[in-house]
Design a binder for these strands. Structure first.
Lengths: 167, 167
DNA sequence: TCTATCTAGTTCAACTTTCAAGAAAAGGTC
DNA sequence: GACCTTTTCTTGAAAGTTGAACTAGATAGA
């Protein structure tokens, strides 16, 4: 961190440490859980599944590579590899963008949509069992607020938030 | 999921969908953030850093491979590779376990401890900025409870929770 | 137009993770 | 002891990720 190297570190309190560990613990377990569930039931990791979902909800089931990468919070490089793999499965195909010759659209194929329809119920059930069945309504509401608060400020737009002279 | 394939799926409500997306969004951004921060400031990914932290807190700065893997929630295979890499950096070394000839201890070296001392303040500051500075005390407390609730039931011990005939 | 710069996307090499297979020691049972 | 099972850890190959370098096309300014 830019500002921490010299001044005395503000260590975490006991409570904060416990929460931090609980956070790491739970998020790791959840991620593993969904990766395994989808690898088993849909033959791909969670993030790839998320890409198909995004495409399925986009107009005409297609999206520009950069936009898809931005939505899914992954680099364009990673997306290139991912789409190549999904293309090999026949679930996505690439298409030249008519308006920008540099551009590519990722298009969800009919096979891709089928695959999604088949695996969605199982995945939703897994999400429900692992998350919503274990939390009270109040906790669900609270979790939403907390996650929105954490995401704010880590958005790419805020990447230079600690470079005030640039604003 | 075992039980979902036939019965009608219980879809997520709008609120649940929003919370689920906020969760994925925030946890992805946070993980990326800390991976980058530690790759830059300590030359290793977040999970490797966590391994060194565990070792630093263990008696005599050493721990059995299996225990370390269990604590860090990773497979033994992954740990083997990780320790090999950290060994190459000189931050960890392996040591035969005296009481069990199959066993290995991972031992944090002096260099490893130094590296940890140098990078800990920056990392703590990063955690603070990204998480605790953005949440109220009440939210921190709530986050802790929520994460503990989510972790319960995903523990490896419960892996066969849906195989009641085995208990 | 000519040039410099920026953007979109891919590719490569290095690294990490996963999964399946396997070696070696420990533990249990006869 | 002999046999079978389990536990511990490693290995190798395939899959996925990262960051840097690169190509091609778009954009802006002189």
């Amino acid at each position: 961190m830019t500002t921490a190297s010299t001044s005395a570190p503000r260590w975490l309190s006991d409570e904060e440490q416990r929460v931090w560990r609980a956070y790491l613990h739970a998020t790791t377990l959840l991620e593993d859980h969904f990766d395994r569930q989808l690898q088993r039931d849909a033959g791909m990791p969670h993030i790839y599944y998320g890409l198909l979902v995004q495409l399925s909800q986009a107009p005409r089931r297609r999206m520009r590579m950069t936009e898809l990468a931005r939505n899914a919070k992954i680099t364009r490089s990673r997306l290139s590899h991912a789409i190549a793999r999904l293309e090999k499965n026949g679930w996505v195909r690439r298409e030249d963008c008519p308006s920008d010759k540099r551009g590519q659209n990722a298009v969800l194929t009919d096979d891709g949509l089928d695959m999604l329809r088949r695996s969605a119920p199982g995945h939703v059930e897994a999400v429900r069992q692992a998350m919503f069945d274990r939390l009270t309504d109040e906790q669900v509401r609270s979790l939403g607020e907390i996650m929105r608060a954490l995401a704010t400020g880590l958005e790419p737009e805020d990447a230079d938030a600690d470079l005030p002279w640039l604003r």
